[in-house]
């Protein structure tokens, strides 16, 4: 699992370093998945049942990372949306989606 996380991070980083805004967004999204998987991996995998007291289990899976992740997923959604709209706005205003050309003036 850890290797998968590492791979996701690798691909995400590569995408973020490219010049196209779209790819950057995709990259952040992939890294987001990577982080989620990383956190839940930290909690230990596949030990015990789902954290529902209704089901009789001896042990439960670690519930804290799950709660963390639940919020993380939703926030991730919001930030992705914001990022998308920002890049979209940048594109419509400036007419390019290339970060190289989005650069400001020399002395800024």
């Amino acid at each position: 699992m850890c290797i998968v996380v590492g791979l996701l991070f690798m691909i995400g980083t590569y995408l973020i370093l490219t010049k196209t805004l779209l790819r950057i967004i995709l990259g952040t999204s992939i890294i987001g998945h990577g982080v989620n998987l990383l956190i839940i991996t930290m909690g230990g995998l596949k030990k015990g049942g789902p954290p529902l007291l209704g089901i009789e289990n001896v042990t439960y899976a670690d519930s804290l990372p799950q709660a963390l992740l639940l919020t993380a997923i939703v926030i991730n959604f919001a930030t992705t949306a914001l990022f998308l709209v920002l890049s979209y706005r940048a594109y419509t205003v400036l007419g390019t989606d290339d970060t190289e050309q989005l650069r400001g003036k020399e002395d800024e």
């Binding site: 590492g6 991070f9 690798m10 691909i11 995400g12 980083t13 370093l17």
Partner: peptide, 11 residues
């Protein structure tokens, strides 16, 4: 750099 990041995160 991305390979570096990937390796580091894996580690």
């Amino acid at each position: 750099i991305s390979i570096g990041v990937g390796v580091i995160i894996t580690v």
